[in-house]
Simulated assay, not measured.
Amino acid sequence: MKIAIDISITDKTKTGTSIYVLELIKALKKDLPQNIELIYLRGPKSIKHKNIITQILNVLIQVYWLNIKIPLKVYSQKIDLVHFPANIVPFFRFCKTVVTIHDANFMREPETYNKLWSKYGLIQYINSSKIANRVITISEFSKKDIVKYFHAKEDNISVIYHGCRSLPINNDVYENNFGKYVLFVGGAFPSKNLPRLIGAFSKTSELNLVITGGEGSDIDNVKNLASQLNMKRKRVFILGFVSDQVLDQLYRNAHMFIFPSLTEGFGFPPLEAMRYGIPVTSSNSGSLPEILGKAAYFFNPLHEDEISESINIVSGDDKLRKKLIEEGYERVKKYSWKNCAKLHLNEYIKVFNNDFK
């Protein structure tokens, strides 16, 4: 059996979806049966300069890749099944198809997304739910949203949790110039709720805040708020995207980790923090209570006072910190890329054997 995976997303972003695709491929290759061949489909790169014209061009490039180039590759290479791991499939089914739809966040928090993209996304996600032989998603929370917003059949959706990756260890001497800090990892997008996080830090006094991740659409607003807080003394450090080696050191040296997202389909960073033995405080929205369980201290992400209170409580209560660290070590054991790959492979085989629609 020839299985193709569309890995185009890995050339476009460094978000959680890219991590998922890369880690899944690594795990699949380790235990792949001899009668299965994996083929990787890498599409054209997006135009980086962002304006309305390039956004439209990027959509057209994606439509061409999905609906013309991939079918031609499937036909010429005699591929049996294609997995589309980044939410969107072609407008018609030309072979057996599996899609991973990660969440419906643009429907749940529409004010935090581009309106034009959201309209396009809604059409595509509904199409994906109908066209694919099988839909995979990453949490029970996301499954409910996919049924609600995209009208997918509940019995055609499988929930497969991600694993928790191991970052490369950096043995170089690391100079911590941030003092005693709380770490946030993620892109500067409105859904990540960074303005409220910075507002909450204005109500604390001892700790600093380190923000690292891609420069999303909310980055200018985040930088402006950080500069206002930094007028008296520098307390907020915005690092942008850093290598995995640097991220390893940021986790190791953090006093605690915070994740204030308005909604999440899964949420890699708090699990990574738990793996490093860092106490985690997190938003109680989206899938985060499902994924993190009892291993995090939760707060309402809409209330700055609750965010700042959670920081003070987790920072100052040694007994609570010890409990969260111990619970975190146990929680991450639940998330294995090996198991994730095994369950994906089972879905591929079932689709190939017509065990689903």
Rank of each mutant, 00 (worst) to 15 (best):
P110M: 04
A152N: 08
E109M: 15
M107H: 09
N133H: 12
I136Y: 02
N105V: 10
A132M: 04
F91Y: 15
Y149A: 01
A132I: 02
I126T: 12
G121R: 05
N127R: 11
K119M: 10
Y161R: 02
I160P: 00
I88F: 05
K144R: 13
S142W: 01
V159A: 10
D145C: 10
I160R: 06
C95E: 12
F94C: 13
F92W: 15
G121N: 03
G163C: 02
D145P: 01
H83G: 15
K144M: 03
Y113S: 05
E109K: 14
K119H: 12
I131C: 00
K144Q: 09
Y149N: 04
R134P: 08
A132E: 07
V147G: 01
Q124P: 02
S118E: 03
S158V: 13
F106D: 03
I138K: 09
Y149K: 03
N156L: 13
N114Q: 09
G121M: 05
K153M: 12
V89D: 06
K143R: 10
D155E: 13
K115D: 04
A152G: 11
H151D: 08
I123W: 00
I157R: 07
F92A: 13
I157F: 07
K143Y: 01
L167D: 10
K153E: 15
Y161A: 08
L167E: 06
E111Q: 13
E111S: 13
V159Y: 11
F141C: 09
K130W: 12
A86E: 01
D103K: 08
A104F: 08
C164E: 12
S118D: 05
K115E: 04
I131V: 12
K148S: 05
A152K: 05
Y113N: 05
A104Y: 00
I123L: 06
N114Y: 02
L167R: 11
F141G: 05
R134F: 10
Y161G: 07
V89E: 02
S128E: 09
V89P: 06
V99C: 08
L116C: 13
E154T: 05
T100L: 05
T112I: 11
N105Q: 13
I101D: 02
S158L: 14
P90D: 14
Y125W: 11
I138T: 06
M107T: 03
T100F: 03
T100G: 00
H162T: 11
P85L: 06
Y125P: 00
Y149L: 08
F94N: 13
I101V: 14
E140C: 01
T97C: 14
